[in-house]
């Protein structure tokens, strides 16, 4: 399972004005793993993701994705890197003027020379792949529920069959059944497509169900990376509270039963 590192972050410093979010953050995500990223609100989980995908230029530090230095990419390299990842933003970030199917076709049109008919077919099975009914294809994002928007966003993130998938709180705002289905979906996509997944979440069930390793963000850096049993051993008040609090215990029991 543990392959070569796909993402390597070292000595990352991020700050907004006086407020320092990350100070010397290190993280490595290996090929084929689902890496969960947890942390209290305001510990910079989303900022970390935005730094890695190049939306937030860091103040200092190095970020490598697929072995490319993200801070010194040529235009061609940048396009090549972007083609191999998919990003699901917190609220889906679907283009509101396009239908779901057209949203999924946007990356294909941008990068590849495919016939309309083939793109339509691909969009159709992608819609099915993320568990949306085919009626959702010709709908506009404003006509979808929150959970459907997330799935549609995931379908767009998966449009190019990426090797690396960034998910920002994919199960937040979903009902428990929908969230569990989403977890299954991500795990089965990882297994069939061989994805590497960078997953920001607050959902303890998701962590137990699908994450191979979990990185804990606190004190402006990655405090500890490990499997959940390893983290349970880790003596840190926040980590203990997080995994051994009432919700943490309930999620652990649920995953043992499952």
């Amino acid at each position: 399972m543990a392959g070569a590192p796909v993402i390597r972050v070292s000595g990352l410093v991020n700050a907004f004005g006086e407020q320092v979010v990350h100070d010397g953050l290190d993280l490595e995500v290996r090929q084929g793993e689902i890496m969960g990223v947890v942390g209290g609100s305001g510990t910079g989980k989303s900022v970390l993701m935005r730094s890695i995908i190049g939306l937030q230029p860091p103040r200092a530090g190095e970020i490598e994705v697929f072995g490319h230095d993200m801070c010194a990419l040529s235009a061609a390299e940048a396009a090549d890197v972007r083609r191999h990842w998919g990003v699901l933003f917190q609220n889906g970030a679907l283009f509101s003027g396009l239908t779901v199917a057209e949203n999924i076709e946007v990356p294909m049109r941008e990068y590849y020379d495919l016939d309309e008919a083939l793109m339509d077919e691909i969009a159709a099975y992608k819609v099915g792949l993320v568990g949306l009914p085919q009626e959702a294809g010709p709908k506009y994002p404003s006509e979808l529920s929150g959970g459907m928007k997330k799935r549609a966003g995931l379908a767009r993130a998966l449009a190019l069959d990426p090797e690396l998938l960034f998910l920002d709180e994919p199960t937040a705002g979903l009902d428990p059944i929908g969230a569990a289905a989403f977890d299954d979906l991500i795990r089965s996509l990882r297994d069939t497509l061989g994805l590497t997944v960078f997953l920001i979440t607050h959902d303890l069930d998701t962590l137990h169900a699908i994450c191979d390793r979990v990185a804990v963000l606190a004190d402006k850096r990655v405090l500890k990376v490990g499997t959940i049993p390893e983290l349970l051993e880790f003596e840190h008040p926040w980590v203990q509270e997080y995994f051994s609090g009432p919700r943490g215990r309930a999620a652990a029991q649920a995953s043992e039963r499952g």
Partner: peptide
Amino acid sequence: ADALALIGKVGEHDVPMRIRPD
């Protein structure tokens, strides 16, 4: 085996779909 799995996977979701509203 990977190819068969993928072929099975896309086959499961073979439903004709409209791209734009009529």
